[in-house]
Design a protein around this nucleic acid. Structure first.
Lengths: 138, 138
DNA sequence: AAGGTGTACTATGTGTGCTAGTACAGTAAT
DNA sequence: ATTACTGTACTAGCACACATAGTACACCTT
């Protein structure tokens, strides 16, 4: 019996994102930052649903998307686990995703009174802060 | 009779954003970049609706939001115009919006194999490119 | 008076998100 | 084998956002 890794998700009612997307983002984040180690067993769909007081179908929907993303691996009768090998995107796909995300980001911040350098510096600082937390978890 | 400034919007069916939001983003972008000059008269709700082959209510919804944002000014019986003075947000509100947009952005790109410096540089380049286009329109 | 303008309604259809309930197949422990 | 837990796949219903369609009204210019 593998020990189940706890997940510290908090569903925010004020969040504009749907519940299943909040779960997807948070689990993906915890796996990326190493908070959920590779191969770890995640809570069952019914267990996490009870913990978050939401419906099991909503959790299943999040797990399905994470499985399609290559982040989780599910085995019937056993449970869902964090993938050992993270699926690799091609270089072109990576660039596409960066470009797309940047376009959305710029569309949000271009109306503000910040210089490009200020925005860039802020992004760098936030990203470095995230990397720093990764090292803390090693 | 003020000449109506044409708007080169293309509604993308593949875009995940609702139609009225695509209109809001595009008009706001064109005003920010100076493509739509301050005080310019925009197409009527029925005119733009016919141009985009969408419903007039959808255009009206976009115009209403832009008016609430302080980007447009509407006068009954006359039309809608680009505001002469762009509404100013407080410093705290600006910081909040930057932080929020950055959080969404990082959530999208943290899973990619780019270094913080690479991402930051790309954002800076894209922002500078936008500023450059502004100068071209002066 | 006529026509174009923004605005405000109501009604209808469609899709998404979420909940609820049920059912089934696979796995492990007893 | 039985039991209990796992993921998965349905159906049904409800709420909400989006978009369309139609109508109506007040405003302004010509």
């Amino acid at each position: 019996m593998t020990k189940v890794t706890a997940i510290a998700i908090q569903i925010a009612p004020g969040d504009a994102r749907p519940i299943f997307r909040q779960i997807v983002d948070e689990i993906r984040r915890e796996i990326t930052t190493g908070k959920i180690p590779a191969g770890a067993k995640l809570p069952s769909v019914r267990g996490l649903a009870m913990q978050l007081t939401i419906n099991a179908n909503t959790v299943a929907k999040a797990y399905t998307e994470l499985t399609n993303l290559g982040v989780l691996e599910s085995r019937k009768g056993l449970g869902v686990f964090a993938c050992e090998v993270t699926q690799q995107l091609s270089s072109a796909e990576q660039s596409d995703k960066l470009a797309q995300a940047t376009q959305v980001f710029i569309n949000d911040v271009m109306h503000l009174d910040f210089t490009p350098q200020q925005v860039s510096d802020y992004v760098l600082a936030q990203l470095n802060q995230l990397t720093q937390r990764d090292k803390d978890n090693d």
